[in-house]
Lab assay of single mutants.
Amino acid sequence: KKIKIKIKVYNPETKEVLELEIEVSEEEAEELAKKLAEELEKKGYKIEEVEI
């Protein structure tokens, strides 16, 4: 079964909002969402919402 992940991120420095969407297997979904959120935060983005 495929799971659709939508991530909306906001960069306070540039006032930019990015929306990302990807489909992955159920097993990958939670781990991938967690890794993406961590990487984006390292780059200065503030995570507003992660929906699985």
Rank of each mutant, 00 (worst) to 15 (best):
E27A: 12
Y10T: 11
L36R: 01
I7M: 06
E28P: 08
E27Q: 12
E21G: 13
N11W: 09
V24G: 06
Y10I: 09
N11Y: 03
K8N: 02
K4H: 13
V17K: 13
V50T: 02
E51K: 12
L18T: 05
K46P: 12
K46C: 15
E28Q: 12
A33D: 01
Y45L: 14
L32C: 13
E38C: 07
E51D: 07
E19D: 08
E48F: 11
K46W: 14
N11C: 12
L40V: 02
K8A: 03
E48N: 04
K15S: 08
E19M: 15
K6H: 11
K43H: 08
E39S: 04
E23M: 11
I7E: 00
E31T: 12
L32A: 15
G44L: 01
V24F: 05
Y10R: 10
I52M: 10
L36N: 00
E48Y: 09
I5Q: 00
K42C: 09
E27V: 11
L20K: 02
E38G: 04
K35D: 04
P12L: 11
A33N: 01
I5F: 03
E16A: 08
E51G: 03
S25W: 10
A29E: 03
V9D: 00
T14K: 04
Y45D: 13
E21V: 14
L36C: 03
E48A: 06
I22H: 11
E31P: 12
E28I: 14
I7G: 00
K43N: 04
I52W: 02
E16L: 09
Y10P: 00
E28S: 08
I52E: 01
E13G: 05
V50D: 01
E38V: 09
E39L: 03
K6L: 05
K1Y: 11
E30Y: 14
E16C: 14
K6W: 04
K34A: 13
E31M: 06
I7Y: 07
Y10S: 13
E27D: 15
E51H: 08
I3W: 15
E19N: 15
L40S: 00
E48M: 15
V50C: 08
L36P: 00
V50W: 09
E16H: 13
P12R: 07
K8S: 04
V17N: 10
E28D: 15
S25M: 11
E31F: 06
S25A: 15
L32G: 09
E51M: 15
K15V: 03
I47E: 03
E39T: 03
E21I: 13
E30R: 08
I5C: 02
K8E: 01
K35Y: 05
K4T: 13
L32P: 01
I47C: 06
K42I: 02
N11V: 07
Y10C: 06
K15T: 05
E41M: 10
I3T: 12
E26I: 12
I3G: 10
K42L: 06
E26Y: 10
T14M: 05
E28F: 11
T14Q: 05
I22Q: 08
E30V: 12
S25Q: 09
A37D: 01
I52V: 06
V24S: 09
K1N: 12
L32R: 11
T14G: 04
E27Y: 11
E21W: 13
E39Q: 08
A29V: 11
E41N: 04
V24A: 09
P12K: 06
Y45G: 12
V24Y: 06
E41I: 13
E26D: 06
V24T: 11
E13L: 14
K34T: 04
T14H: 05
K34Y: 06
Y45E: 13
V9S: 15
G44E: 01
Y10A: 06
P12H: 04
E23A: 09
E39D: 05
E19K: 15
E41H: 04
I52N: 01
E41Q: 12
E30L: 08
A29L: 04
K6D: 02
K1P: 11
V24M: 02
I7N: 00
V24W: 10
K35V: 06
E51S: 13
E48S: 06
E41F: 04
L32D: 06
L36T: 03
I7R: 00
L32H: 04
K43D: 11
E27S: 13
I52R: 01
E38Q: 13
A33K: 03
E49D: 05
K1S: 10
I7C: 02
I5R: 00
E30M: 06
K4Q: 07
Y45R: 07
E19L: 15
E41K: 11
E19T: 15
V17L: 06
I3Q: 08
K6M: 05
K43G: 05
E31Q: 10
I52L: 08
E27R: 06
K46D: 15
A33R: 02
K43M: 14
L18D: 02
K2S: 07
A33L: 10
N11R: 03
P12A: 07
L40M: 03
K42F: 02
K15M: 03
I7S: 00
E16M: 13
E19F: 15
E16V: 11
A37S: 13
K42H: 02
V50I: 09
T14W: 07
E38N: 12
K15H: 09
E48L: 07
A29H: 03
K1I: 05
V17Q: 11
I47H: 00
L20E: 02
K35G: 06
A29F: 03
Y10Q: 12
K8C: 03
L36Q: 01
K42A: 06
K2E: 10
I22P: 01
E27G: 15
K15Q: 04
K46Y: 12
G44D: 01
K15Y: 08
E16I: 15
K46L: 15
